Amino acid sequence: MNYPIYGACQCGQVSYELLNKPKRVFACHCTECQKLATGPYSVTAVVNTSDIVFKGEMREWSRVADSGNSNNAKFCGGCGNRIYHYNPDDMSLIKLKLKPVNLEDDKVFAPTEHVWTDKKLSWCELP
């Protein structure tokens, strides 16, 4: 795959340029990700902040995760698409949880693992 690759929210107000391959891609089955995805799981790619460039204005929302960490989310104020998550209490990691939104090449976000599978919906089959 050739980098950079480009993605955007549903309305196109927020876009991003991914400069390098994600460090990790997983499907999360926790109940919060089920709500986020309005489906059985949410796909998340973890990338270094230095490997991504955003354009456009985003709004922010936060909650406390089951771990006790702060989980902040950036999203498009126009269409509401979630763009990424981050933990402001642990900036030493400097990683973003990028939501795969309207990518030119979707293969970069194929999950290699499933997490929180004890919360998966009964009808969801794991590979």
Rank of each mutant, 00 (worst) to 15 (best):
V108D: 07
C28A: 07
E104P: 02
T49I: 14
K74E: 13
D90R: 10
T117D: 06
S42P: 07
Y41L: 07
S92V: 06
N20T: 10
L98I: 10
E57W: 01
C28Y: 10
M1Q: 14
K97F: 15
V101T: 12
S42G: 06
C11V: 03
I83S: 05
M1A: 08
D105C: 05
N87I: 11
K99R: 06
N48L: 04
V47C: 00
P127L: 01
P22E: 06
P4H: 02
R24N: 15
G7I: 09
E60P: 09
D106S: 14
G80T: 09
I83H: 06
V14D: 08
G39W: 07
S62Y: 11
K21A: 09
V64Q: 15
N71F: 13
N72S: 15
A110D: 13
W123Q: 04
E57H: 02
D105Q: 14
R59D: 15
A37F: 02
V25I: 06
E60T: 15
F75P: 02
A27K: 07
E32C: 07
V64S: 08
W116A: 07
H29T: 00
E113R: 12
A65F: 09
N69C: 07
N2D: 14
D51H: 02
G12Y: 04
Y16V: 10
Y84W: 13
D118K: 15
K35S: 06
N48G: 03
V46A: 11
G56T: 04
Y3K: 01
M91K: 12
L121D: 12
C124D: 15
K21F: 04
A8T: 11
C79W: 01
S92I: 05
V25K: 01
E17V: 08
R63L: 13
S92E: 14
G78W: 12
P22R: 01
L96T: 13
D90W: 11
K55Q: 11
P88K: 06
Y41N: 03
V108Q: 04
W116N: 15
H114I: 06
T112A: 09
M1Y: 11
L103F: 13
L96Q: 07
D66L: 03
Y86P: 04
N20C: 03
S67Q: 04
A37L: 02
Y84I: 05
D118G: 09
N69M: 14
H85T: 07
I83F: 10
V43E: 10
K120P: 03
L36E: 14
V64G: 03
L18C: 05
L18N: 05
P22A: 04
I83P: 08
W123T: 03
K74V: 09
V46C: 12
G56Q: 04
T112S: 10
P88L: 02
S122H: 11
A110Q: 15
P40Y: 05
D106A: 10
K107Q: 10
M1I: 04
L18A: 02
H85R: 12
K74I: 08
A37S: 12
